[in-house]
Design a binder for these strands. Structure first.
Lengths: 253, 253
DNA sequence: CCGCGGAACTGATCCAGATCAATTGGCCGC
DNA sequence: GCGGCCAATTGATCTGGATCAGTTCCGCGG
């Protein structure tokens, strides 16, 4: 791993990260202060989208990556018939749009779930920067690889987990990711509908609803519309692993 | 996309690609003849593994990417309990190991399904090369992005498709991918077990077996152990899309 | 040639979760 | 406050595919 030679003021840096998540993403690339500022100034192209707005649509030509500054997005693919599958939710600090790198066109659509502020990183600009900052190129590769691993986890969840485990895993993941933004990881605000959650997990709304009720009955959490209060993170954790549940689907090989 | 200024002898190139799939992967990067030869000479580190052998295991430190020259691999993740999920199968010309880029350790294991010849591309070497060949870096990014999109399709399959559609999609995908290797796309040889197929698709072996039988009864294909003869590619195609089947899982939003 | 062992196939039953059908609860405009 | 609307919840029933329990097929060693 390359490491910046110049010492970096981390706390000040994180403040600017809060302002534009790309920096957060590039931090491990070993970029020094001056380069960071150059970077920062090149991505000031922010915009605000209202709930329901589309950041990009499946098929749109690729010209930029995006970082969520505030708010939440979902990415969705539309298959042959009209049906759609939610691929993921994107919280502040997370990157969106890497699906377009391979084919020069977006393979999914990104929809805004609540008023959101987005940083746009034109890819041409990014290419200029990577020519100058070798660490950035590598970091970009890491980011895409991380996205791929995230999709793989999603596959594992869909392929091997029961409905209840899926929901537990989803909530735990959200909790962990919100942890970067707030100190309290036990109060989750869900900006997405039950339909989105269900679709993301590959079950129907009714199932999600019933599972929330069941978890509430078990004393694991407390639900009130968009707000989830996790009472027993330990129990939630147990519900993620195959806690005594018998296995679905076949062993391999 | 960038195009090599020097004209390239494509057919000769593909022959060398046959010798080492990396070239195939790098072709679109716009690399000229001399650079390709340099590249080729730096990846002559081939090795042969027997069926059942492991190319790498989950948790292994990352030091190289791999290209399948001949044979087939599967990649697999092991979750908390012993259960495993097959993430994918890798045919000649395909790249393996990009899951390790993000975390400097492999997130999955790669197992050889039949005697296979593998090209090892040490990442340190690759970094040297990318410093000299800007197009290669970009191509690498594209490859990882493409892998991510492939995982996303897998998610869609698992999340929204019935068992029969999943199998049809799997067979069609195999057929298309074998198409790069052989002219006849109607005869498939499946190097993986029924267990592997079932696990990959998120169903149990019995279901796969019954589906093969059903498809044979429908006259779509002919099965004999490891060999699948597709009689009606058109029907197979229909079985992929939601051909009249009613939808599973909820609409989003 | 026979007997063994593992993969593949088939049949009978069961159940998690889908589907269908209301009901409840908030929120907003009037 | 009242009525309309839509998200969320709950209940009753149905079903695709899992599970359980064999049986068949094929390769291989003796």
């Amino acid at each position: 791993m390359t490491q910046a030679s110049a010492p970096i003021d981390l706390s000040q840096l994180r403040r600017s990260c809060r302002a534009c998540g790309l920096l957060e993403l590039c931090l491990p690339a070993g970029i020094d202060q001056a380069e960071l500022e150059r970077l920062d100034s090149s991505v000031r192209d922010k915009r605000t989208l209202e709930s329901g707005g589309m950041l990009f649509r499946q098929g749109d030509p690729f010209h930029a990556l995006y970082v969520v500054r505030s708010g939440t997005l979902k990415t969705v693919v539309q298959d042959a018939d009209g049906a759609q599958q939610v691929l993921g939710f994107h919280l502040p600090g997370e990157i969106v749009g890497v699906d377009a790198l391979a084919h020069d066109a977006h393979q999914s659509s990104a929809e805004v779930l609540e008023r959101s502020s987005i940083c746009e990183l034109p890819y041409s600009r990014l290419e200029e920067l990577t020519a100058q900052i070798p660490g950035l190129q590598r970091q970009l590769l890491r980011i895409v690889s991380r996205e791929m691993v995230a999709e793989q986890s999603h596959v594992v969840t869909m392929g091997r987990q029961q409905a209840q485990e899926r929901l537990a895993i989803f909530l735990r993941s959200l909790s962990e990711r919100y942890g970067r933004l707030a100190r309290d990881t036990t109060h989750l605000i869900l900006p997405m509908s039950r339909y989105d959650i269900a679709n993301y997990l590959g079950v129907v709304v009714e199932t999600v609803s019933r599972l929330f009720t069941r978890m509430e009955d078990l004393g694991v959490l407390r639900v009130s519309r968009k707000v989830i209060h996790i009472l027993r993170p330990d129990l939630l954790g147990e519900m993620c692993g195959a806690g005594g549940a018998r296995e679905r689907a076949g062993r391999a090989s």
